[in-house]
Computed example of a mutant assay.
Amino acid sequence: MLPFTVEQFLAVFVNYNNAIWPAQILAYLSGGLAFALVFRSSKWSDRTVAGILAAMWAWTGLAYHLTFFTAINRMAYGFAALFVVQAAAFAYAGVYQGRMMFGFNAGPGAWIGIAFVLYAAILYPLLGLAMGHRYFELPMFGVTPCPVTIFTFGMLLLTRQPFPRQLLVIPILWSLVGGSAAMLLGVPQDWLLLVSGAISLVLLIRRDRWLAPA
Score class of each variant (00 low, 15 high):
residue 75 M to V: 11
residue 161 Q to M: 05
residue 34 A to F: 10
residue 110 A to Q: 01
residue 151 F to K: 02
residue 164 P to G: 00
residue 9 F to Q: 04
residue 199 I to F: 07
residue 29 L to S: 05
residue 134 R to Q: 13
residue 7 E to A: 15
residue 126 L to A: 14
residue 141 F to I: 04
residue 189 Q to Y: 10
residue 20 I to Q: 10
residue 35 F to Y: 12
residue 34 A to T: 11
residue 178 G to N: 13
residue 140 M to W: 14
residue 78 G to K: 07
residue 140 M to E: 13
residue 62 L to E: 10
residue 49 V to A: 03
residue 197 G to M: 03
residue 46 D to G: 08
residue 51 G to Y: 07
residue 22 P to D: 10
residue 82 L to M: 15
residue 102 F to N: 05
residue 156 L to H: 05
residue 103 G to E: 06
residue 140 M to C: 04
residue 180 S to E: 14
residue 185 L to F: 10
residue 128 G to V: 07
residue 209 R to D: 10
residue 109 G to L: 00
residue 120 A to W: 02
residue 11 A to S: 07
residue 110 A to T: 01
residue 90 F to W: 14
residue 49 V to M: 13
residue 19 A to R: 12
residue 133 H to D: 00
residue 32 G to K: 00
residue 17 N to F: 01
residue 165 R to I: 11
residue 104 F to L: 12
residue 43 K to H: 04
residue 65 H to I: 00
residue 201 L to Y: 10
residue 116 F to M: 08
residue 106 A to L: 05
residue 10 L to D: 06
residue 72 I to N: 13
residue 120 A to V: 02
residue 99 R to C: 03
residue 188 P to L: 13
residue 123 L to W: 09
residue 81 A to H: 00
residue 187 V to C: 08
residue 7 E to M: 05
residue 83 F to S: 12
residue 64 Y to Q: 03
residue 56 M to P: 05
residue 57 W to P: 02
residue 139 P to V: 00
residue 122 I to H: 02
residue 119 Y to G: 01
residue 214 A to R: 15
residue 2 L to K: 08
residue 174 W to P: 04
residue 45 S to R: 03
